[in-house]
Simulated assay, not measured.
Amino acid sequence: MSETTNSKSIGMSLKEAAERLAAVSETSRLDAELLMQKILGLERHELICRQNECLSPDKEAAFEELVLRRIKHEPIAYIRGLKEFWGILFEVGPGVLIPRPATELLVELALAAAAKMTGELHIADLGTGSGAISVAIASELKNRNRNFKIEALDWSDEALRFAQKNVDRYGLRDFINLGKSNWFEALENSKSCFDIIVSNPPYIAEDDESVMPDLAYEPRQALFSGPEGLDAIRELLFKVPEYLKEGGAFFCEFGATQKELIENFIKNNEFLSSNFVCSFYKDLSNFDRALKLEFKQLV
């Protein structure tokens, strides 16, 4: 028999891989398709049209290698080296947090706030990671012909390496300035300068037993933050008033069960409760997911 006769079709390989991946992924069929797309260099519609074609032995072996990596819970985004966010493909890999769909809410809120502001916008993205939030906001503002500058900061050299790739990938160097910083550290000379500050900080509790196995591959410092998962958020809330302009706003992502803890923290902080209003927003799954902190309007 020829090698071609012995080879599996693309469709059969996808079916078998999806069955094996079902034990580790709720999106096993999609995972299998994404892995096959990587091996064959095809778009999804092309893959669908070629289901009956046979895989060459080398492609079959390469696909099997990727399937085995996924069975070990390695995230699809790391295996592919790509993750879509806000309709944009971002380069990602070990050492940088994988952008999640829920975080698109921060982009929506920031853009809605920007639409109500006039003049040049000064924006800070704290803990930028892959640069997903900054690139998404910058792409939209650029298309709207707004004048703006984004300071995108992260403490991780590896994260900044990926962020730079993504900024360059979409030609946004003139709009996004990347820098190494532990939160506000690099902004000491920029107090009361920002119209919008946005952050997706770590917010998982250190002893959270519900954490998915896939997260073991992502940088721990981008995920976990103290016994309640709120150490970073509290630090940001404590410091952010120094850096906002009058009329500015701070947007921050948090965990689905943390709203009440955050409300209590703000309520018990006399300066925050006296001078700021905090609003909360739900994600598409109807979980509390983001907050907006803004100055109270003077009557």
Rank of each mutant, 00 (worst) to 15 (best):
K15H: 12
L21D: 04
A23Q: 09
S25A: 10
T27A: 03
D31W: 00
A32F: 11
M36Q: 02
L40E: 11
G41T: 01
L42Y: 06
E43T: 06
R44E: 14
I48Q: 01
C49V: 12
N52C: 14
E65L: 04
V67A: 08
R70E: 00
K72Y: 08
E91W: 10
V96A: 06
P101I: 00
T103R: 04
A110R: 05
A112D: 14
A112R: 05
A113D: 14
G127C: 05
A132W: 09
V135T: 04
I137E: 00
S139C: 08
L141E: 00
K142M: 03
E151Y: 13
D157S: 09
K165S: 06
L178G: 12
W183I: 10
L187S: 09
S192A: 13
C193Y: 13
I197Y: 06
V198D: 03
S199Y: 06
S199A: 14
I204N: 07
A205F: 01
D208Y: 03
M212S: 06
P213N: 06
Y217K: 02
P219I: 02
L223Q: 08
F224K: 06
P227S: 09
D231P: 13
L237R: 14
K245C: 00
F250Q: 04
F251R: 05
K259R: 10
E260N: 01
E263C: 02
F265G: 05
I266K: 13
I266E: 11
S273C: 10
S273T: 07
S279P: 14
Y281N: 03
D288S: 09
R289S: 00
R289T: 05
K292I: 01
E294I: 14
